[in-house]
Design a binder for these strands. Structure first.
Length: 185
DNA sequence: GCAGTGATCATA
DNA sequence: ATGATCACTGCC
């Protein structure tokens, strides 16, 4: 039986207690792990993220102050922030940075699921995870994965935040370009 | 290109 | 109580 690889440990709190753009970058290649009711684990490699930086970031929900919906963003890092968008799609975020700073990273793509609403639909994630820790105890967490070389990472403006003025243009979306990854097999 | 969908929030 | 908004998706 092989040793349990270090990468199967959940990412530690210190990983999340950093600025959201650093966390968003470093989550590329990480594995999103979900535990099924029967105890089985499924893992999905994260390939697309977006950073929401804090109260000064006009695209960030926290920029309008604390509300019942976004209160989790103001809390400690490493918790899930899940909310419903357009009445149909759950958005999965992980809170980052210092307590009191409303920052988070949106997971927009993982495994075979392309798009934030498809990730949550595919993994069965909904409001029940809002406010819970990204930890084994909650059945949904993140593990370190293979590092993604910088040349395989693209940065673009975030999707769907045109209302945010100059903040809509900031390159806070991070995407892995699979064609630029080292050859696998 | 745009309709669907409903919780959330500001306004009253 | 009401209306606008919305970090999207799927089908035209």
């Amino acid at each position: 039986m092989p040793d349990m690889p270090r990468s199967s440990q959940p990412l530690a709190a210190a990983f999340y207690e950093r600025p959201a753009d650093r966390v968003a970058r470093d989550l590329l290649g990480a594995r999103l792990v979900v535990r099924a009711p029967d105890g089985g684990l499924s893992r999905y490699v994260v390939f697309e993220t977006e950073a929401y930086l804090g109260a000064h970031d006009l695209a960030c929900h926290g920029s309008k102050g604390m509300t019942k919906r976004n209160a989790v963003m103001f809390g400690p890092a490493g918790r899930w922030y899940v909310y419903l968008c357009y009445g149909m799609h759950w958005m999965l975020n992980v809170v980052t940075g210092a307590e009191g700073v409303p920052a988070a990273v949106l997971i927009r793509g993982a495994g075979e699921f392309v798009g934030p609403g498809r990730v949550t639909r595919g993994l069965g994630i909904d409001k029940a995870f809002d406010g819970r820790a990204a930890a084994r105890t909650t059945g949904l967490w993140l593990e370190a994965g293979e590092p993604i070389p910088p040349r395989a990472i693209s940065r673009t403006p975030r999707i769907g935040v045109g209302y945010a003025g100059a903040w809509a243009e900031k390159p806070l979306r991070f995407v892995v370009d699979p064609a630029k990854l080292p050859t696998m097999i």
